[in-house]
Design a protein around this nucleic acid. Structure first.
Lengths: 210, 210
DNA sequence: GTTTTTGAACTGACCGGTCAGTTCAAAAGA
DNA sequence: TCTTTTGAACTGACCGGTCAGTTCAAAAAC
C-alpha cells in the first residue's frame, strides 16, 4: 500500500495530499514575495502543517520549489499538447491549432496566475541552483509550439521565411504578457477579449493586409 | 560630464557618480539573485563603496531599488519616444514607427539585460511596497506604444477591430520575451535576426496573407 | 473481534548563523 | 569650512534546517 508515487501526487494517499497543500501554499507566497523572501515557516503555516512536515516531504526549500516548477509546467505542457492534438483530430489547420494553444495558455494562466507569475519571474534568472530544471521544463513547453509552427511551414500554411525558434518565443511572450497584464491590471476583461486580440495578431490582421 | 539623470538630480557630480555605481551594482545582483537575496553589503562591495555610503545616498534598500526602477524605465521610455518621433519626422508610417520601437526595445534589452530581467520579475508581483512605483513607470512606457497604435487606427493603417490596450501589451510581451530568450538561450543570434522575426509577426506575414 | 505492534507521517521547540538598518568618529575631498 | 565617504561596531530580529518525540491507521497476533 505504498501509494507514495512522488511523481505527480494526484490525489492518492495522505502524503500526496500534504504535498499538494504545500504546493498551493508555496506558489502563492513565492509569487507574491519572491523565493528568498518567502519563509518555510510561512509556507507551513499557510498549508496548515508543521514546519517539520515540509522537511519530511521535501529535502529542502529549494527542492520544494523545483518540484513545484516541474509540476506546474507539466500541467501547462499537457494542456498545450492536448489542444493541438484535438485540433489535428478535428482536421483543423495549423493556424487553428496555434489559436487553440493560445486559448489553452490563457485558460491556464487564468487558473494558475500565481504559478505563471512565479515562472516568468524566475525563467531568465542566472541562478545556478534551479536554472537547469527551469531550462528543461521551458524547452518541453516551447517545443510544442515549435512543432506546430514547423508543421505549418511544411504545409505551406505559414510563411517559410519565419524563424521557428524566435517566432515561438515571440508567440509565447505575447500570450504570457498579455495574460499577466489582463490578470493584474484589467481583470474586468473577458478571456474572449484577450483571445480575440491575440488571435488577430497571430492571423496578421493588425497591420492591414496587402 | 554626464551628471546622469538621477531622477531627482540634486546636481552634485560626485554624489551622482556614486549613485550610478550603486545602481549598476544593484541591478546585476538583484537580477541574478532577486531583491531579498541581495544584501546591502554585497551591493556596497560590488560598487566599491562602503556600506555607510549606501545609507548616505539612499534612505533604505527599498528606496535604492525604487529609484533604480524609475531610472531604468525612464531610459527605455525616452528611447521609445525618440524612435517614434524620428519615424514621424521622417514621414514614416505608423507601422514603421512600431517597427522602429521594436528595434529600440531590442537595443535597450541588449544593453541592459539585467535591468530588463529584474523589471519583468517584479512587474506582476503583488508587492505593496514598490507596486505603485512600478505601475506608474509601466504605464508611461506602455502609453507610448498605445499612442502609436491609436494613431495607426485613426489613419486606417491598422485594423479598427484591434483592442489598443491588449494589442500594446501583446506587442510589448512579444519583444520582451523574444529578447530575453535571445539573451539567455541563443546569444549567437544577431539583433537583426530577432528584429526580423518580430517584424514579420507585426506585419502579419507569419500566417499567409489572404 | 479484540489487542498489540509497527512505522510512515507529522510536530514544534531549538540552534547556529545571517542580515538590514543605524550610528559615529575620523578621514578625504572640494 | 562644508560636504561626502569611510569602515567598523552593534543590535534585534529572523531564518533554514535539525531532531527527539508524538500520533494513528492498518497490519499482525491472539
Amino acid at each position: 500500500m505504498d501509494s507514495s508515487s512522488t511523481g505527480t501526487g494526484t490525489g492518492g494517499g495522505r502524503r500526496a495530499a500534504t504535498r499538494q497543500k504545500l504546493y498551493e501554499a508555496a506558489v502563492t507566497l513565492i509569487a507574491e514575495k519572491g523565493f528568498s523572501a518567502t519563509t518555510v515557516d510561512e509556507i507551513a503555516e499557510r498549508a496548515g502543517v508543521a514546519k517539520g512536515t515540509v522537511y519530511y516531504n521535501f529535502a529542502s526549500k529549494n527542492e520544494l520549489f523545483e518540484e513545484l516548477l516541474r509540476h506546474g509546467v507539466g500541467l501547462l505542457t499537457a494542456s498545450l499538447r492536448t489542444s493541438a492534438e484535438e485540433t489535428e483530430a478535428r482536421g483543423g489547420s495549423r493556424v487553428e491549432a496555434l489559436d487553440a494553444m493560445i486559448r489553452a495558455g490563457l485558460v491556464f494562466i487564468e487558473r494558475y496566475p500565481a504559478f505563471t507569475q512565479l515562472y516568468v519571474a524566475e525563467l531568465w534568472r542566472t541562478n545556478r541552483t534551479w536554472q537547469s530544471t527551469l531550462m528543461v521544463v521551458r524547452q518541453e513547453a516551447v517545443a510544442v509550439v515549435e512543432k506546430v509552427l514547423r508543421e505549418g511551414v511544411e504545409r505551406g500554411e505559414l510563411s517559410s521565411e519565419i524563424d521557428v525558434q524566435l517566432t515561438a518565443a515571440a508567440l509565447v511572450g505575447m500570450v504570457l504578457v498579455a495574460a499577466l497584464d489582463w490578470q493584474s491590471f484589467q481583470r474586468e476583461r473577458s478571456l474572449d477579449d484577450v483571445h480575440s486580440a491575440l488571435s488577430l495578431l497571430l492571423r496578421g490582421r493588425v497591420s492591414g493586409n496587402r
